[in-house]
Write a protein that binds this DNA or RNA. Sequence first.
DNA 1: TTGAAAGCGCTAACAT
DNA 2: ATGTTAGCGCTTTCAA
Lengths: 325, 325
Amino acid sequence: MRDVASTAGVSLKTVSRVVNDEPGVRPETAARVQAAIKQLGFRRNDMARALRGGQLSRTLGLVIEDVSNPFYSAITRGVEEVMRERGLMLVAGSSDEEPERERELALLLCERRVEGLFIVPAGTDHRYLLPELRLGMIAVFIDRPPGCIEADTVLLDNVGGTRKGVEYLIEQGHRRIGMIGDDSAIFTERERARGFREALHAAGIPVDESIIRFGAHSTGAADEAARELLALPEPPTAVFTGNNRITIGALRALAATGRRIALVGFDDLELAEFLALPVTVITYDPADLGRRAAELLSRRLDGDNRPPQTVILPTNLVMRGFGEV
Amino acid sequence: MRDVASTAGVSLKTVSRVVNDEPGVRPETAARVQAAIKQLGFRRNDMARALRGGQLSRTLGLVIEDVSNPFYSAITRGVEEVMRERGLMLVAGSSDEEPERERELALLLCERRVEGLFIVPAGTDHRYLLPELRLGMIAVFIDRPPGCIEADTVLLDNVGGTRKGVEYLIEQGHRRIGMIGDDSAIFTERERARGFREALHAAGIPVDESIIRFGAHSTGAADEAARELLALPEPPTAVFTGNNRITIGALRALAATGRRIALVGFDDLELAEFLALPVTVITYDPADLGRRAAELLSRRLDGDNRPPQTVILPTNLVMRGFGEV
DNA sequence: TTGAAAGCGCTAACAT
DNA sequence: ATGTTAGCGCTTTCAA
């Protein structure tokens, strides 16, 4: 910028005025400056700008489990949609479900002076954020609540969604209903397990722990769990699967064994309508998780000081005719 | 940081030393500084740090069509994997296939002094980057080549992949093969169209333009195009679909009309193995596009000065037994 | 309409 | 082992 100033034969401040479209520059002076800018290929340094101008990085941070998981990238998209209007950019990182990495990323983003933080928590203790929050950092949690601190949160109706799914199976006449879930360290999974049990209790059906499996964190593990259930002397006639990876694993097990039991799963499946065994699913709009979180953050940015909010997003039961016995 | 220094009763530089784990500080002094840091909730300002330290933002920029499209988020993931080792973060933005927005985003990222730029181009003229490149910015293009400039590029073997797919149909005995493609303004689509024509020529089959449709940019448009082809007095016995959205549209048309023609599509489909009408596809590893691009950028960061490289990634034909007449 | 000087938070180079 | 000084590139006073 100094070079531009000397090339154009004006002062630093005049260049700054031109670059930022500030008034008070004669058109001919501005033109001379513009020429110098073009000639030197000058581009304003946003970091220096932010440094002087009160630390506004015009950036938001996002810590998610895996940027390539369609569920999470839909969240990213929702956040981006809302934030684009404010001219904010998004820095994202994958925690890979490791609490330590989540912490590192979040703190790194704070060092970068992001104006706000979206976190899909991997860990269960977020006190490490307390100093930041005290200094004005804004954090919004997505899909899972924060641990040991209070903050704005957007969740799915995991319990209600699962209840709807299991109730649907019960309506179809099933009494022996199993469940395959992810690691029960994961909040959403515990909630879904709760919904599962509640639905059975409400229908007066005893919960048989022998047809419930947790810890299926991959498609392969789910496949295996499903085979175990099928191999039981008294296998379930229906199974509720806790997320889309697990549903796929169960489908694989069914395809491989040629067995056919009723299946209802949490999360929508791409192409679900074309599957050889159409599966009923609990759906929701993942981008909406991002949008709602972005709206909460947006309000905080505008000075909203109300106590932390928790938003619960509804789910839908999409029947695809594979619930019958 | 000044506050920390005065609280701990030391100089600014000593605090800096402690924060950056530089040697030459007595443990007890360091402890006093640490205490002050904790007390004040101090966190190093990365922007100021970068400003002083020669503009290293430790950040890379990524401009893609849509962060929520699984194809692109896989690219993001690939880039992230490689860059994480270098401690670099990723700022991403969606161009929504608009050249103007691509330009804005790219230039904005340059203002932020990213250390490199990954671009999935929406536009066809990238001369706007020339001043940046001259000043040392590194840009790597992904999936589509840059226009009017030279730069490192990672592409898929669109022509070869399509040829393989069409040749497979020909081997199955098809002679009347149609194609449904996306907007032919898109590079990959033109390449795939070329592969399609080449395969037919090589087999001595005349190209019948009446069973070729372009411009199917959405699943709905593809559905419609497929119905048109099926309604022809002499419909094709097989169709090559130019990408996964189009394949899905064609599947929808087939499901709705109850017709059954052979289908081979570019791009893999999630759950393809479970579809009622298993479809043969041309697959590749989208994350690999990101990884290879990141490796190219990585090398440039390390001072590699060779002329721009273009890497072409291979594709595979995955037969799923729906090629027969 | 334009410019000079101060300073954002930090670190590199040079004292002490 | 610690402190001082200067300056990264810009914007914000305040003055001309």
